[in-house]
Design a protein around this nucleic acid. Structure first.
Length: 448
RNA sequence: GGAGAGGUGGCAGAGCGGUCGAAUGCGGCGGUCUUGAAAACCGCAGAGGGUGCAAGCCUUCCCUGGGUUCGAAUCCCAGCCUCUCCGCCA
């Protein structure tokens, strides 16, 4: 935490501006700085008194060993000196404890400044930096060319939304999901369930066999220290499901348990980078999002995701973010889904990120771009909270690592895009080539 | 859930309430020796914070949090975790 203070002292204007750019309160920076001044005053005085007490206590021990009476008058004088120092130490430590709690709390509320080249602003300031694939129209001719070449009066068909197609196929059961758990807890059945497994397996297979990730299967709950480490507490606390009785949090993403794997640890430089790929269910309360995307599976309280998590040397993290984003894009290309990559503007980023790319797939049935991946470089922000360090040189001083993570990929919207992109006029859906071995079939059709 | 044992540095493992940030072994780093390596020998080696240009000095940390004491790794209390046995159970 105090490495953060160091940066705060050295670079307060940039941190302040970073908070403003992200739409956060910059006055917290000054409050933290002021509290830090008081903290150091108390620390200096407390340390001085502790040194005094230590020497006094030590001389008591020496006197006794030299033959003095442990309860005699000469030791009593020494004890009085030590006791007096002890009382003042107690008072100072008490104030120090409250001041440090204040500093820690304030530090947790100062956001990570965005990289200097990140556009400043809200959604309108996001920059599309890449697009891939054809953005299919909702209405298209039954045969022949798609697009401008199509004849105006030719017979056409209309793509349906994924929930309509899924209803025909019998692969979702949203109503019964609502009955047994609540709205936003989808049930997948039959080939819908198999499609979930297929996607998870294929994603993990690509990451582990081709991309060099180590697979992790994490717990679905974490403790408060882990939630704080990755920044869910205090920033996004109300987005998490809490198991109050046991003081546990349902994970909103595998990022939380997997990044915390190395909390309070020191890597050797030769161990980096560390690359993990982890499947987990993800639980999100989506508080404040009521009424948005209520149809289908575009916004749900529980979904499945494969997450990529990297621990990197600072000088390598920028390139690692590009690489990791590329790994997520590769999955979409091999599925045959059109997508675009956005560099997110400052107010569209989270509290903890230095740079973030969102990847959105085109869903031609609902005619919308759907976010399926978010790839971020946290630089040393999470590492500081979690005390994850590495030794640049053997035997050298530890320094903070950089952490990154990105979805690779989140399932529901990929499923929606697959259904809407590869649906046929008769209601069947073609299975992408890469998934056919996992599903054991080339298309989804209604049973019977 | 019940009963017992235990949590010390990268690992293993000592540690009468004062001289313990902590013996010893392994591992690590540097060196001697060697054509090179191994072995042997010598030496260095924890983390955080404060202060200082720096060398350094001071301070905290022996699971966590309280307490007793002039002084706690060592004593007391609570919690967490691990192991063994019993019970229950996918």
């Amino acid at each position: 935490m105090s490495v953060g203070l160091q940066r705060l002292r050295d670079d307060a204007p940039a941190i302040r501006q970073g908070a403003i750019d992200k739409g956060e309160d910059p006055s917290i920076v000054d409050a933290a700085l002021a509290a830090d001044v008081r903290r150091r005053e108390l620390l200096a005085e407390g340390d001085r008194l502790k040194a005094e007490r230590n020497t006094a206590s030590k001389s008591i021990g020496e006197a006794i060993r030299a033959g003095a009476d442990a309860n005699g008058p000469e030791t009593a004088a020494l004890k009085a000196r030590s006791t007096e120092a002890g009382e003042r130490i107690a008072a100072i430590d008490a104030e120090l404890a409250t001041v440090e709690a204040t500093v820690d709390d304030l530090l947790l509320r100062i956001p990570n400044p965005a990289d200097l080249d990140v556009p400043i602003g809200g959604e309108e300031a996001n920059v599309t930096i890449r697009e891939w694939g054809a953005q299919l129209p909702r209405i298209q001719p039954l045969s022949g060319e798609v697009g401008a070449d199509a004849l105006p009066d030719a017979p056409s068909w209309e793509r349906r939304a994924h929930w309509d197609v899924a209803a025909g196929l019998g692969i979702f059961d949203l109503e019964r999901g609502a009955k047994i758990a609540g709205s936003g807890f989808p049930v997948y059945r039959g080939l819908g369930s198999a499609l979930q497994r297929a996607l998870i397996s294929w994603f993990l297979d690509v990451h582990t066999r081709e991309n060099g990730f180590t697979e992790i299967w994490p717990p679905a709950v974490v403790n408060a220290a882990s939630a704080r480490g990755t920044g869910q507490i205090p920033d996004k606390e109300d987005q998490m499901y809490v198991v109050g009785r046991d003081d546990l949090y349902l994970v909103p993403t595998a990022e939380v348990p997997v990044t915390n794997l190395h909390r309070d640890e020191i890597f050797e430089a030769t161990e980096l980078p560390v690359r993990y790929a982890a499947y987990s269910p993800c639980f999100r309360r989506e508080a404040g999002a009521a009424g948005k995307d209520t149809r289908g599976i575009l916004r749900v309280h529980q979904f499945d995701k494969v997450e990529m998590v990297l621990f990197e040397r600072p000088e390598a993290s920028a390139a690692a973010l590009e690489w990791m984003t590329g790994r997520a894009e590769d999955l979409l290309q091999r599925l045959g889904l059109a997508y675009r990559v956005l560099l997110m503007a400052t107010r569209e980023m989270g509290f903890t990120q230095g740079r973030k790319y969102d990847i959105e797939v085109w869903a031609p049935g609902v005619e919308r771009w759907l976010e399926v991946s978010s790839c971020s470089n946290f630089r040393d922000y999470q590492a500081r909270r979690m005390a994850v360090r590495y030794r640049p040189e053997p035997g050298g001083r530890p320094e903070l690592v950089h952490t990154l993570n990105g979805s690779g990929l989140a399932l529901p919207r990929v499923v929606a895009a697959i259904i809407e992109t590869f649906q046929n006029p008769d209601g069947s859906v073609v299975v992408p080539d890469v998934l056919q071995p996992y599903l054991g079939r080339a298309e989804l059709r209604p049973p019977g």
